[in-house]
Design a protein around this nucleic acid. Structure first.
Length: 551
RNA sequence: UGGGGCGUCGCCAAGUGGUUAAGGCAUCGGGUUUUGAUCCCGACAUUCGGAGGUUCGACUCCUCCCGCCCCAGCCA
């Protein structure tokens, strides 16, 4: 058995080189979500990368909330993000950090830049600023406030800070180059006025730093060695470096960009996911159809499979679209290896074994998992009355054995973990619908081959009609059945798959499932993987979510 | 028509001048099987966006061309 070594990605190569050349002594990374929504599968890639890198190189990774915009941020999101990262299995160094922890430091650096003649208060309004910025092909023009004395800017900054200036009336800008071919360098805004309470600093501030003025400095304060972000920030890197070069920072982190994860048939846009939640198209952020980590968790997707999937992804600068089938492969792989087996009849059809004693009852023992001896076996009550799935019986006896490996009149089938039975007769109601099957069991066939001449067509699942538990099943399909929801024109809301949730009432589950609890994973044999729903299941009504079907 | 980035099998992707162009997903065959699952075997790029060039030798170096993505928020 040879271990296939996973090729190292470009970031690992850079870190290795930095370590060898002594450019860095300690690898420090960070996962920097903005608490304006829930984490989704796309974030998982970044989390696995950042925490993974720190682990591989013996460093550490910080969890840092980039909370520089009180307009969109809430504590609810902070708590949810903490829970999700923990669930994924990662531990950050120390306490979670917040950009807002550094507001004072950032403010003093702003003063420093003004004093150095490298920042100024600009009184252009938003529209004017846009005009002055120029376009992709034309250089911008200097703001008329660009050369105002530092003392004046300092005074105005203080005024902004204490709330003595109106929102939108002025900003603090870095004095860089209005003719730069990189638009981000055309005197970017460092501070803007927002007279709004912050989820952590309350009403202490009336101004908030922009992403560009905050992010790199947060990294420097934390001693981040490699600041890994997604591709769309590549154009911000020169600015990241400009601040690092012009401020007396405690360390100089380097930014590297990689391609974010895109999945087909999946929408990963916090804004749009929020819209699904706000407009109640889904049952909250943790709706099992959502690509959020909380949704996946409630759906029954394991943290291990999310990690395995993320680790299988390339860390490169290409921005491709991964087939969601690849994610599903890892979900099934983990569940197949670890989920307890059980039987549940979704669409019950009663079966009476005419040759089985009326009062007899026995307990059959079945493996908890076909190839995991370490998992406990289970007891299956068996009696004269059973349920099988309607789909496992056909009135059409001409169906070939190969095409229909289930029950037909006059032929045999194996009850999984139990006896071989044959169907002798059907009971129909007034409308002609089959309501019951009269069958015979073949004694001595539990765990044994049937006698010569009896060849079961296949194996079907079943449940003892007198000793089973009722449950509701929530069957989920993908939320969108278009490959790129939200891409073309038209609203993604109209692209929601109307059949993404089908509820089955009163399915019949094997007795042992009555004690199933949240967090356990089951394979309902021949059906799919299920878990107890954390929101709707109760002692009165057992509710299972279908994580994913069998292939 | 500015700047930045990317183009290797249906999808993801390794490859860093000399390999029979890895691997995974998907797909299609066959075998095992008390889950039509799992598992196992096999098939699946004479070719690396295109055209030139350098070289004994190029997916890897050079030139030009084509295509896609990102940047003109007081969002991140």
């Amino acid at each position: 058995m040879t271990d296939i070594e996973k090729p190292t990605n470009f970031i690992q190569q850079i870190i290795t080189a930095d370590l060898e050349a002594n450019r860095v002594s300690q690898v420090v990374t960070r996962f920097p979500p903005e608490p304006n929504g829930y984490l989704h599968i796309g974030h998982a890639k970044s989390i696995c990368l950042n925490f993974g890198l720190a682990e591989q190189f013996g460093g550490h990774c910080n969890l840092r909330f980039d909370d520089t915009n009180p307009e969109k941020e809430e504590d609810e999101f902070v708590q949810a993000i903490i829970e999700d990262v923990r669930w994924l299995g990662f531990n950050w160094a120390g306490e979670p950090r917040f950009a807002s922890d550094y507001y004072d430091q950032l403010y003093s650096w702003a003063i420093y830049l003004i004093e150095q003649g490298k920042a100024y208060i600009c009184e252009l309004n938003a529209e004017q600023m846009r005009d002055y910025r120029g376009t992709l092909t034309e250089a911008g023009k200097n703001s008329p406030y660009r050369e105002r004395p530092a003392a004046e800017s300092l005074e105005l900054l203080e005024k902004m800070k204490i709330g003595a200036a109106d929102e939108g009336s002025m900003t603090l800008r870095a004095k860089i180059d209005m003719a730069s071919p990189n638009i981000n360098m055309r005197d970017p805004v460092m501070y803007r006025i927002k007279k709004m309470p912050h989820h952590r600093t309350g009403d202490k501030w009336n101004i908030y730093p922009s992403y560009d003025f905050a992010h790199g400095q947060e990294d420097a304060i934390e001693g981040v060695s490699h600041s890994v972000c997604t591709l769309e920030f590549a154009a911000n890197r020169p600015l990241y470096e400009w601040f690092a070069a012009n401020l007396p920072l405690p360390s100089v982190p380097r930014q590297y960009e990689f391609g974010r994860l895109n999945l087909n048939y999946t929408m990963t846009s916090k804004r749009k996911l929020k819209q699904l939640v706000d407009e109640k198209h889904v049952d909250g952020w943790d709706d099992p159809r959502m690509p959020t980590l909380s949704g996946l968790r409630r759906r029954g997707v394991t943290a291990a499979s999310v990690r395995e999937f993320c680790n299988s992804l390339a860390v490169a600068k290409t921005d491709g679209v991964v087939d969601v089938a690849q994610f599903e492969h890892f979900i099934r792989e983990d569940l197949n290896n670890n989920a307890m087996r059980a039987m549940c009849v979704l669409n019950p059809l009663k079966v009476t074994l005419s040759n089985y004693p009326v009062d007899q009852e026995e307990l059959l023992s079945a493996a908890g998992h076909p190839n995991r001896g370490d998992l406990a076996s289970r007891q299956l009550p068996f009696s004269r009355e059973l349920y099988i799935d309607r789909d496992d019986f056909s009135l059409d006896s001409t169906l070939s054995r190969k095409k229909f490996k289930r029950l037909v009149l006059g032929d045999y089938v194996r009850l999984r973990g139990g006896y071989v039975i044959s169907a002798d007769d059907v009971v129909t109601d007034s409308s002609g619908e089959v309501v019951e099957l009269i069958c015979s069991y073949v004694p001595g066939t539990v765990g044994e081959d049937p006698p010569e001449g009896i060849r079961p067509r296949g194996v079907i699942h079943w449940v003892d009609a007198n000793n089973c538990v009722d449950c509701d099943l929530y069957l989920y399909e993908r939320l969108f059945n278009v490959p790129a929801p939200g891409a073309g024109e038209g609203s993604f809301v109209e692209q929601i798959n109307p059949e993404s949730l089908k509820i089955i009432r009163n399915a019949k589950a094997e007795l042992g499932l009555g004690s199933a609890v949240v967090g356990e994973h089951y394979q309902f044999e021949r059906e799919g993987y299920y878990c107890v729903d954390s929101k709707y299941s109760s002692s009165e009504k057992l509710v299972f979510n279908r994580t994913i079907s069998l292939r």
